[in-house]
């Protein structure tokens, strides 16, 4: 497999000169799972070394993502997920890795009272809701194994970090949360990594226009307007953050309260009207 982490063209020349005083970072991006994955490392004292480390780290991350996409993507007709969807194989015949992710997803369905579900309303098993988070988690393991300590991995808006953007300073990574009413602006910021409790931040939203989302649950699959336009969840791990963000958008306030009562998380939710609901951790 050829690594394809080529730099993408800058669409915002005016904004490219951001962060003049912030910590200097180097990043690599690649396309996978229908979105763009970005890995950023502190630029460090020796830029050449950083570049080499970053290329190797990005290649390792891309291998993890590509491998999982090959198995779980419903957009690839030859994937295990697609063969299962077409009924050519059953779960009994599925690989151990596939069944393990299916078990994860059904476990989360129980924990979220059905608001997170691995089944599409048409009955097709779709594990993509859990696979991106799992891929980020596995990529983190690969980065740790490679001895990279300070990094920020962003997969289409879901973030996991390790260490600090300025190694030695103990300063956290600062993640911005997109304002769903104006996607060119930030609604809030949230510190991740360093000595804090949270390394992961995931955001889920209704469709770009914001009108409909599958509001599914055990025995209540239906198509209706969601109460929340967007939900961001900070957690210690990315799978928890990602699954709960999805469940909160699907389940509305009852799921939001269940999440904050039951997990060590911070949540920032944007209602359909644009008003905010937030746990104390998001308060300035």
């Amino acid at each position: 497999m050829q690594p394809t982490f080529k730099p993408l063209p800058a669409a915002h020349p005016a904004q490219s000169a951001t962060n003049p005083n912030g910590p200097a970072l180097k990043s690599r991006t690649f396309h996978c799972m229908g979105t763009v994955i970005s890995l950023a490392l502190p630029a460090g004292a020796a830029p050449q070394d950083t570049g080499r480390v970053l290329d190797g780290a990005a290649a390792a991350v891309e291998r993890v993502f590509a491998g999982l996409d090959e198995m779980f993507s419903l957009y690839r007709p030859d994937s295990e997920a697609s063969r299962l969807a077409r009924g050519e194989v059953t779960l009994r015949d599925a690989s151990a890795a596939f069944r393990a992710r299916f078990a994860d997803a059904t476990g989360w369905r129980l924990l979220t009272d059905g608001f997170f579900t691995p089944e599409r309303p048409d009955g097709v098993l779709d594990l993509s809701g859990i696979i991106k988070g799992y891929a980020i988690d596995q990529a983190a393991t690969a980065l740790q194994a490679a001895g990279v300590e300070d990094w920020c991995l962003n997969a289409g808006g879901d973030v996991l970090v390790s260490g600090s953007p300025a190694p030695g300073t103990g300063s956290p990574w600062l993640a911005g949360v997109v304002d769903p009413l104006d996607r060119a602006a930030l609604l809030s910021g949230f510190p991740l990594g360093a000595a804090g409790r949270f390394a992961a931040l995931a955001t889920s939203g209704t469709a770009e226009r914001g009108d409909h989302i599958w509001r599914a649950g055990v025995g209540r699959t239906e198509f209706r307007r969601s109460e929340f336009r967007q939900a961001s969840v900070a957690a210690a791990d990315i799978v928890t953050a990602d699954v709960l963000a999805t469940a909160i958008v699907a389940g509305g306030r009852p799921m939001l309260n269940w999440a904050t009562d039951s997990w060590d998380v911070e949540v920032l939710a944007v209602l359909g009207s644009g008003e905010l609901l937030a746990t104390p951790g998001f308060r300035a």
Partner: peptide
Amino acid sequence: VIKAQSAQVQTISGATVTS
């Protein structure tokens, strides 16, 4: 809420963007 300008942050969380 905790405020942040795009010039201050190192990464952005939002609903999944397409390529």
